[in-house]
Design a protein around this nucleic acid. Sequence first.
DNA 1: TCTGGGGTCCTAGGACCC
DNA 2: TCTGGGGTCCTAGGACCC
Length: 352
Amino acid sequence: MRTVLLVDMDYFYVACEELRHPEIKGVPAVVGMDPKGGSGRGVVMTCNYEARKFGIRSGMPISMAYRIKPDAIYLPLDYYYYDRISAKVMAAIKPLAGKFEQVSVDEAYMDVSAKIAHASEALEYAMTVQKRVLDDVGIKCSIGIGPNKLIAKMACESAKPAGIKQVKEEEVGEFLKDMEVGKLYGIGEKTAQKLRKLGYSTVGQLSKANMMRMMELFGAFGAEMVRNAKGIDDSAVVENYGIKSIGREFTFDSDTDSGMEIEARIGELGRGVSLEVSKSKKSFKTITLKLRYADFTEHLHSKSIKVTDSPEMLISTAVNLYRQNADRSRKIRKIGVRVSNLVDYSGQKKII
DNA sequence: TCTGGGGTCCTAGGACCC
DNA sequence: TCTGGGGTCCTAGGACCC
């Protein structure tokens, strides 16, 4: 029997900002793209609970947030700063885990089976973890506890803010039974819609679905869904083994069909990607250009070349992908450049 | 109200090689 | 003259998560 914790920082980016700007505590604050007086095209990344009282939510268009509450504090994103705080948090709690898996900047799984004698001690152990984050870094987190990662993750949702929620093995069925099917981890809006049409509106109903039929309809994912709906998840808590791709994206202030403007931006994105690539000491093989047109349709175009770490190759390949594939009759809203098939740096010939 | 940017994983057809 | 099967890589698209 395992005991797994999912530790999730509360409104992480704003919590980071509160550390260096204590004066924003208790007033509505939003971290996200520049609202530009209401004409900005980005979204809200995170907001504190004071902002939520007014109906502002993460993922909401920043222009809408601005309309609701123009006098809220709007802060730009500072990923480097958040990464530093994140590293502090992870360093604080990692020693408390048997096995540790960071899943994002503000979330980590901890398998604590080896740290406690029985699941009944998990609640107390989680309080220790929470306290450690608060004492060492000064921010609050919520913790979900379950017999596996899936249940820990979903328990955490009902622990927010600043709470702890444990779902014991024998409580899993009851916990999931009446849950809306879209709330099951891994099921998004598209799949939820399909499932509802098939008559599966709750996780409990999905758990009783015919496995073979679900596999016909959804492939391997269908079987996985039914297992998850039963609360089964055997995936281990494992240390991350490195990044698979590196990319940068940019949304234009207004949609454009200017080849010059677009190619200049591809160059800038390419340089940004190159910088990250060299920081991570990798070379790459595949370059992917993403085009989002004004109507939001998205297309990917990729090209694999000889393994390289050359920024020039990256940019010229991306520009060629644009020239060869873009529909010039339509305006473009967003472009992205990404490299994948990463291998450890080998650009420099070494004499052995 | 009008929709970001960073990622991951899966599928499927076709090319190519043995 | 007609016909293999397996494995891997490439490309494009789609769904999902934070």
